[in-house]
């Protein structure tokens, strides 16, 4: 990852943490100051979806032209994406406890996100259960495509068909509730970009670590032969 992108991510996140806590937000009953959680909770999900999207692209590329490097990237993007998803889930549950009354509501989006996380957890279980490296990579690449295809309706479509406590449900796409408020967008979009960049940065580190691991294994194999 280019250094200027890392710097950009840091600058954006510092701005988001200062602006997100101090800048004016709409005064809404029940939500009160917790409306600021939008700046920190929602970017986790945007980060997760972006990382999963990059992961599935690498999986497709792997199936077209198999190589260890592509498989490595697909796994690690999914891995860091899952971390973002878990953080999104935890922050959402805490927010829900104060905005909706309890940690778990059975809200369609909440349930859908939970199922999507489980689907991706199964991806790692699948990887762990196959011994042969090539088979592992190919099977998990195929599964990754199915996992991504399952996540999209679970998070973006089904919650919009039913009533949900999440904003943007019942047919309204996006953040209609905050549409009038451009002040929030000024912090929200930088937060999304900042966290996505941090996610990609962490992923590249993990990909390189995995590369080192593989090289060490190769060296050991050479010694034994």
């Amino acid at each position: 990852m280019k250094t200027w992108l890392k710097i950009l991510a840091i600058v954006l996140l510092f701005y988001v943490h200062i602006g997100g806590l101090l800048m004016d937000v709409p005064r809404l009953n029940i939500l009160n100051e917790t409306i600021r959680a939008l700046y920190f909770h929602v970017p986790m999900w945007f980060g997760m979806v972006t990382l999963f999207l990059i992961s599935v692209v690498y999986s497709v590329l792997y199936l077209v032209n198999p190589s260890v490097a592509l498989d490595r990237k697909a796994v690690e993007f999914a891995n860091v994406g899952l971390v973002f998803g878990i953080l999104g889930m935890l922050t959402g549950m805490l927010w829900a406890n104060y905005a909706w009354g309890s940690f778990w509501h059975g809200d369609p989006k909440q349930n859908g996100a939970a199922i999507a996380l489980l689907v991706y957890l199964a991806y790692f279980i699948l990887r762990g259960s196959v011994e042969n490296e090539e088979q592992k990579a190919r099977l998990s690449a195929v599964y990754n495509i199915f996992a991504f295809a399952a996540m999209i309706p679970l998070i973006f479509i089904i919650p919009r068909l039913t009533s949900s406590l999440h904003p943007g449900s019942g047919g309204n796409p996006g953040f209609n509730m905050y549409d009038l408020d451009n002040r929030m967008r000024m912090v929200f979009y930088p937060a999304v970009i900042g966290w996505i960049l941090i996610g990609i940065w962490v992923t590249t580190l993990r990909v390189r670590m995995r590369g080192i691991e593989d090289k060490i294994h190769d060296l050991e194999d050479e010694k034994t032969h």
């Binding site: 510092f14 943490h17 200062i18 806590l21 940065w201 580190l205």
Partner: peptide, 23 residues
């Protein structure tokens, strides 16, 4: 509170840079 959160953020990012160097 803002300053404290920024210290945590700065610390984590510094740690990320150090890990980058280590790798």
């Amino acid at each position: 509170v803002v300053a404290i959160i920024l210290i945590v953020l700065a610390g984590l990012i510094t740690y990320l840079f150090l890990m980058d160097r280590k790798v």
